[in-house]
Design a protein around this nucleic acid. Sequence first.
DNA 1: ACTGTCGACTTGTATATACAAGTGCAAAGA
DNA 2: TCTTTGCACTTGTATATACAAGTCGACAGT
Lengths: 263, 263
Amino acid sequence: MILTFRKQYLSLQLYLQIYTNYSFRQMALKEAPQYRKLYEKLRKLIEDGTYKRGDLLPSENELCGAHHLTRPTVRNALDMLVNDGFIIRHQGKGSIVQGQPKGIGILSLSGTTSAIGQENLTTRIIIKPCVRSWEQAFGYEISDNDKSVGCIYMERLRLINDVPVFYDITMIPNLNLPRFTSRSLKNKSLFELLRKHYQIQVKGGEQKILAITADKRIQQHFKVKNNHPILRVDRKMETNRPNFSFYSQIYCNTSDYSLIGRF
Amino acid sequence: MILTFRKQYLSLQLYLQIYTNYSFRQMALKEAPQYRKLYEKLRKLIEDGTYKRGDLLPSENELCGAHHLTRPTVRNALDMLVNDGFIIRHQGKGSIVQGQPKGIGILSLSGTTSAIGQENLTTRIIIKPCVRSWEQAFGYEISDNDKSVGCIYMERLRLINDVPVFYDITMIPNLNLPRFTSRSLKNKSLFELLRKHYQIQVKGGEQKILAITADKRIQQHFKVKNNHPILRVDRKMETNRPNFSFYSQIYCNTSDYSLIGRF
DNA sequence: ACTGTCGACTTGTATATACAAGTGCAAAGA
DNA sequence: TCTTTGCACTTGTATATACAAGTCGACAGT
């Protein structure tokens, strides 16, 4: 009994080794873990209104039964929903749906595209991705290695319902990113591009937020007058690729759209 | 065997009932769970520099051994450190210390006091806590029940190294908060006061961030001139007490101190 | 009609265990 | 010498289980 099992294990390992060593690395996108799949499902059900604000989600045990999982796994999924602000939990009561986190969730992990929704967002490339040198990035120190390879630099203006709201400057170390500068970013998420073509996932990061007044250039892009208050966010994005971070500076006109997030 | 246990269980329940019903509710502060204790320990070790940026934390198994816990419990503690940005983890490698999240972590869950550190922060009460009526709170809808009981209102100016940086307006539903208005908030954290005296824990919340220009009143408090850009944060704080939220509006002068957070 | 108790639910904490999968080094082999 | 293999480590995912503790409604006793 034990022997058969052992054998199975070994052959699986062998298979994996061949799998990863020879070529089809592109397909190596591992299937998402159970807890993540459940998270996506529940999230969708909340987003499409199947569960409304104030509703109780099925209890953890019910979810276990329905999806053939155990409680720790289910709880893992629910933890993610809590972190995103979709639900809150009360001991003895259940998981209470909070509804969709409103507004522009730029403060959280999502990129601008997914935070706003593609329908209303258009992107205008002001400076096309090109390779430059750099010494620092919006106050964040960069490594010597990053310096030596230079960075991919670009500027984009993002409009919500045709009103200019964000101005992004992005700097990405030019490391193992073949053909990046030739890829189109028009109406496409940068995060998605990195994930799909380069297997780079943004895992988190650091941000600095401050209020400034618009300079000449920003005034023009946003079509606002002198002394108009602007919110600036300097961000460092950390990824699943060790020691690979990239940086962006975002100017936001918050007159019509304020930044909303959970904490 | 089962009987004895059953009896023990019942008597414990009886004890708890007396315990909570009669008076010494003050002491009812349940001892923190293991994973939280470990989190606090590790956090302290990072904050005091025992573990420096770039170091590896002891492996999960080592922590298990050292603290007599199991891996899920240890991982629970580490998850919290990841959320706070103290560490990041790499599969196959370990938990890498990121050092202390720098700057003013007001964007995260902590209150202003703990985010900045008591040494440098002083608080000036501008309007002492008093009971008022309210219809809404910084754009957030409030319940009919909250409306009927009124709110505890206060305004505070917070200075870092004697420079005015934050101006807080806080509104708390006047629900089961005996003697609140007579308690001193001078150099004391509001969050701590709520936790210690009323067993109210802030669990999370929602915030809206925008850039504005200082009005007359704010100009005076911050000693800045006309058109000075100011960052405004409107927050709704949710607590462990069901249906109990409170609200604050924070004006920040970000000329010298920008808001830093992780995402 | 009111009060208090109890039980059946919920989520919270913790243990024990197993295997998957990434990392890095050392030893074996060319 | 260089490459590859394999092993010993790490964290990641998942199961199964147990009991603690908060919530709420039904029901019995007053």
